[in-house]
Amino acid sequence: MKTKEYVRPMPANWFMHNRHLQLFMLRELSAFFVAGYSVFLLVMLYKAGQGEQAFQQFFEGVMKSGLSIFLHLIALAFVVYHALTSFNAAPVIMDVRIGEDPIDPRLLIAAHYVMWVVVSVVILIVAL
């Protein structure tokens, strides 16, 4: 005799089930902005390759527009969110131990922030 089993289908809005899943979806969404901005950077690089004048035109015409600034701010927010959640996930991905015991996960996260600041400072110094 075969008994009938009851199968509950996954609701289409499963990602709304709890805050953790909502934040996860936000992170997934942020990846689009990270990718999108990468494409934009490539375009910028391409323009730079066409000479200073072309780049200036692009800069004045496109980048200084209100829409561009608005999109930049949104992209920035998502990229920062993406970066922070990546940093916070570091202790899960990396198994760093001293002797038998894993090191304090906060240390590992802090190390990422320090690296971030250092890299940012170096880039700024080179840029200025």
Binding site: H20, L21, F24, E28, A89, V92
Partner: peptide, 15 residues
Amino acid sequence: TFIGECSRVCPKHVD
């Protein structure tokens, strides 16, 4: 996709 819910609900901290 590294949602992480498995580790959050794990009662034995298996992660």
